[in-house]
Every structure is written in structure tokens, then in C-alpha cells.
Design a binder for these strands. Structure first.
Lengths: 349, 349
DNA sequence: TTGTAAGCGTTATCAG
DNA sequence: CTGATAACGCTTACAA
């Protein structure tokens, strides 16, 4: 019913007494249409309630007016991160303003990541994609480029890339965490890192190592897959060491929260016996006890900047690199002065 | 370059020595094509690497081959819930198998929920939508119907609806939580509910009240917006009462975690002084200390069942209602025997 | 400045 | 079972 009533460009043209072509020109405000014609056409279109058919437009222009975000099979690990939600909201903030739409694809065991990108490109479902969680030597870059898609990467790739990138200085966040802890007197700080094949995880780990070394601090890094489970495991390993760290810097909030649970379960007081910092400043973190000290990144802003970069790329702009504001350390209850002596055996009772 | 090389149905027809029409028939395996023709056509198509153009198909059939999910402005509250991720993954499990794609739209202050649905329908970006977090007298149902979109609702609507629905028995989950607590000797149990205008929040609250009444238990319900912040506030209110509850049943994990933080902050031991249960069995919950007892719903399954229902609706099936398996209570450390006497003043020291 | 007509790549119709 | 031919609704040379 609503379909039957839908006017086409031809209806508008007829009613306005002009040709279809002219209506098209007027709509896409292109030069070569007299002001009066344009006004009349737009007026007629408005009163007829005409909206150009996106499908017809897609067919004739070869564009989809949609961008994609592929979530790897690590759904439960990385995508469960609240970061993602804010990030997507940021993308949408911009996409929705430009008539684009966000297509979300989740890679499954039955359809791997690569296949997912291929499918999206094959069907021309999207004009471009957002590449998150960049990996070392990320093959998605070449893949996506070869598929003829535009793209923007989150974080600067380690290799060549024809795409724009938007990044935030993870290192600065980690450095401020280390500085904060060092200032509190900590001398044995550990880092629970994400997978080293992920560039941002790696950068955080490197920043940690360097910052700690600069401060003359004993350091220890354990690598995980970013999941709460592995964050908990890593914490157990660290706390079981002879020279137990007095503080742990986690590469994300999920792991930090899990680590907090482990420490408390083992009878350690946080922050008296162990200080903990997270990364991303997840909402829930501030409500735990103690509230989580964390590095706050602006995921939503990141999303909108990335979306803008992608749209620019689609418009033919040359690749650029944007750097977001430095993340800030939000100090809360989970960090405190280093224990005076060896904390071993300093459990609650 | 990859566009230029792309063969069309005409190329395939020519090469196979048949008409375009026949290729189309063969592709959509429709009756009226001899087995030999079909085989040859498909073979030629394969060797030419031909894939039908989704855009052309969309234009001529009037379908989009996409379904939408609109996330309300309550992004930070409801969508930050890990439930959503698993749910979307479940949708994708099915969509990806049927050549559909998931379009995610986030309502913003500048573009309200209603406008978002309108936009999606106006541009015919999607063939159908998934309606989550059903509300009382939900106006989205009439809206979406009037927009000519197919839909599936999560949970059974309270009014008339032309759409299929998929729901899980929230009540059963809450009842098992109450039964569990009652069995542990709790006689004053509170419920921190979600917004009563949301049907599932309301149903949980009702189930709570009834189950508690049946068990002859003192009950108290505080309504929130589902956010961790309000969950924390509600907890503070409850704990400040003269007759403090010995257990709190939260309507989601986020609030339960925040509540746990509040209790601990006030010096209460969980579960010795206060038992806590969550809802949804979020991954992080099991890693806290104490680990969260929670009602486990299968969000991913929910997503795939909903997706299937939506595809059926698009295929012209009559509306149905599907009920998922009853959620199970996962008992962990956050619940324990009720304190012997009035717990007031039973803080850690 | 405006009109005309040829695509874009399918699906659908309808005589052969 | 085939094979033209006409939609589908827009964009875009090319003419006028």
C-alpha cells in the first residue's frame, strides 16, 4: 500500500513540467539548473512526498551508501568489550547524518573473517569498511584493498597501507598509569597484556616496558587474549610468584576486573596489598569496590572520527592519519601507595 | 578494475547459449528449466565467476536483503549490556547463512528512535526489523507495521501485534532465584527492577513479587533504568532501610555488579551479610569476588531464533510465537545462607 | 538551461 | 522450455 503510492522521479518531473534529468540535477544540487526550476522542482518533490529510491540510485551509481564493520570470531572476547558499543555509536553519529548505514557482520566458525569481507565486497553490500583491532602485518589491509573497498584503520598499521587511519596514543595512557603507580612508590609492577599480534595490545605492552624501565622499575609482562578468563589466569600466575608485584597494569578493563576478583579471592586487599589499573574506563568499573583506576579513551569520538575519515576516503580524499586526544588516567580506589614491605603473606587474615 | 571485469547475467547467457531469462530461472532454481540446461548454466556461471548483482536484484524485486536493529538512545544503558553482543551474534549466525545482512542503527539525540525507523523504511534499507526491549503499549509495533516493514519482537507484546515474537520465560528465572534464596533461609528479599515500562523488566518484577508472596517473604521493589549507576543507587537506598533485606535480586548483571560494589563499600560481606543475584549471566560476573549468582539466558540462541522468525515472516509465514528454553540459575559465591539475626551493623569490623 | 535517451543488471511477462 | 521485451527508478552523457 505504501509502496503503491510511492511517487517516482518521473511523477515529480511530470508534475513539475520538466524532465527526469532535471529533477535529478536539482536533487543532487548540481550546477546547470536555474534557481527557479530548482525551487519549483524541490517544492513539487516535497509536496508529493518524493524521496529518491536508494536502490535505483545504488544500481545506477554503483555505490551502496553503506559501510561495514566486521567483528572477528573473537566475539566473546573483544566485541564483548563495552568499548565496541560506544565506538559503533560514534560511527553511527556520523553515518546517520550522511545517509549512510552501518552494516554489522559477525564472522562465525562457518564463515571466517576473510570470507566475511569477501562476501560483503562480492555483493557490494558496502562501500567501505572499518578495520578495528589492527594486527601485525594485517592481511586484511591487502585483502580489503584488493576487493576494491575503501577503508579506515583504527590505529596506524605497521606496514604499508592505502587507507586513512585514526589512532589514539595508547602509550600515553599506559605511561600515565605507570607514572601514577611509580609515584605511589611501587617498584614491582606487572603488565597483563593483550595478544601481541594485535598492534594496540603490543603498543601498550611496549609502552609499559619502556616506561617501567625508565623509572627503574622491575617489570613483568604476561600475555593474554584480552578475555576476562585469561586476565584472571594471568593474575593468578603473577600473584603466585616469589617476588609478587605490588601493582598490575591491565591492558583492558575486563581483565582488570577479573584480576581484582582473583586478588580479592586470594585474600589480598586492593589497593593496600595490590594496586590495579584498567584500560578503557568501562562504565561498570567505577561501580566495583574498589572502583577501578583506568585509562579513559573516548570510544565514541574515535568512532565518529573514523567514520568521517571513511566518508572522506569514499569522496576521494587522499589518505590521512588522525591522532585523537591523549587518553587520561582516571584515578580511583583501586590504586594506592605501595605496601611498605614484601607483601607476600599479607593476606587479609 | 574489479568492477570492470565483473560479468553480468547477459554474459553468462551468451556464453551458455541461452537467454537471460533462463539463467535467472536456473539461478533461483525454479521449475521449467531442463536439468541439462541448469547444469550447464550453473557451470558457465561458476567458471566465469558470475554472481548476480544484489543491487539489480534489489531494484527489480523490491527487497533489500537486509534486516535492521535499532538501538535506542539508551545506548549507554541497555546496549552496553553484553547481552546485546551475543544477541547480535545470534542474529548474524542466521542472517549470514541466508544472504541477509544486519544493519545497525543507533538513535541519537538528533535522530530519535521513531525517525530512525522511518529513515530505514523510507530508504527501504531493510526488509524487516528486530524489536528489542519491548515496552508497554509499544508504539513501535504500529509504527513499523505502518511503514510496511516486517518485524519480530523480543518478548510477547502486551497489545495486538501482527508480528511473530520470541521470548524467554523471565519469570522462571526470577522464580528460581527467589526459590534459591528462600531455601537459604532468606525472609527479606528486595528486587532492583528495570524500568516498568519495559515489558521484560516488568515481568521480572511481577514474577518476583508473586514468588516472594507465595513463599511468604517480605518484599521490596525499587525501580531503575537498568544502568549500573541506578543499580548502585537503589542498593544504597535498600541498605539504608531499618529492616535491611538480606538478599537482593537484580534485574540484570550490570546492576548486580554495581550493587555488589556498594555493599562491599559499606562494609558488608557478600554473601555472609547480603546475598546477591544477577540476570543474564554476563561473562565478567563470574570473575568478580564473590562470583555472581545469575540467571543465564541464551542470548545467542535468542538471536538466531528471532532471525529465523523474521526470515520466515519475510517469506510470508503467518506470525507465530516461540518460547525459548527456561533460563537456569547459575549458583555461585554471591549467594549464601541468610544471616542468623538482624544483619544491621554486621559490617566487616 | 533543459530535454532525450541510453544505460545499470536483474526479474517478470508472454508469445513462440 | 526459449527468447524478446518491458519494467524497476535513477544517473548521466549528449543534444538542443
Amino acid at each position: 500500500m505504501e509502496d503503491a503510492a510511492r511517487p517516482t522521479i518521473a511523477d515529480v518531473a511530470r508534475r513539475a513540467g520538466v524532465s527526469k534529468g532535471l529533477v535529478s540535477f536539482a536533487l543532487n544540487d548540481r550546477p546547470g539548473v536555474s534557481p527557479e526550476s530548482r525551487a519549483r522542482i524541490l517544492e513539487v518533490a516535497r509536496e508529493m512526498g518524493w524521496t529518491p529510491s536508494l536502490r535505483a540510485r545504488a544500481l545506477s551509481t554503483g555505490r551502496s551508501f553503506a559501510c561495514g564493520l566486521v567483528i572477528g570470531r573473537s566475539t566473546d572476547v573483544v566485541a564483548a568489550d563495552p568499548f565496541f558499543h560506544s565506538f559503533m555509536a560514534g560511527l553511527e553519529d556520523v553515518f546517520s547524518m550522511s545517509g549512510q548505514v552501518l552494516v554489522l557482520a559477525v564472522a562465525t566458525p562457518g564463515r571466517q573473517e576473510t570470507e566475511t569481507y569477501r562476501g560483503l565486497a562480492e555483493d557490494r553490500r558496502v562501500d567501505g569498511v572499518v578495520l578495528t583491532d589492527l594486527r601485525a602485518d594485517d592481511d586484511r589491509i591487502a585483502l580489503v584493498a584488493s576487493l576494491g573497498l575503501a577503508a579506515v584503520t583504527l590505529g596506524r598499521p605497521d606496514g604499508d597501507s592505502p587507507f586513512s587511519s585514526v589512532s589514539v596514543d595508547d602509550g600515553a595512557g599506559i605511561r600515565s598509569a605507570v607514572a601514577h603507580l611509580a609515584g605511589l612508590g611501587h617498584r614491582r609492577i606487572a603488565h597483563v597484556a593483550g595478544p601481541s599480534r594485535m598492534l594496540h595490545a603490543r603498543r601498550r605492552a611496549e609502552a609499559f616496558t619502556r616506561a617501567a624501565a625508565d623509572a627503574g622499575i622491575d617489570t613483568l609482562v604476561v600475555e593474554t587474549d584480552f578475555s576476562a578468563a585469561e586476565g584472571a589466569d594471568a593474575t593468578r600466575v603473577l600473584l603466585a610468584r616469589d617476588e609478587r608485584p605490588t601493582a598490575i597494569v591491565y591492558s583492558n578493563d575486563h581483565m582488570a576486573m577479573a584480576g581484582l576478583g582473583v586478588a580479592q579471592r586470594e585474600g589480598l586487599r586492593v589497593p593496600e596489598d595490590l594496586s590495579i589499573t584498567g584500560f578503557d574506563d568501562t562504565d561498570i568499573g567505577r561501580h566495583l569496590f574498589p572502583a577501578l583506576t583506568s585509562v579513559a579513551t573516548d570510544a565514541r569520538e574515535w568512532g565518529s572520527v573514523a567514520a568521517r575519515a571513511l566518508l572522506d576516503a569514499l569522496a576521494g580524499a587522499t589518505p590521512t592519519h588522525a591522532e585523537l586526544a591523549e587518553p587520561a588516567l582516571i584515578v580511583r580506589g583501586s590504586t594506592g601507595p605501595a605496601p611498605q614491605h614484601h607483601p607476600r603473606g599479607a593476606g587479609r587474615d
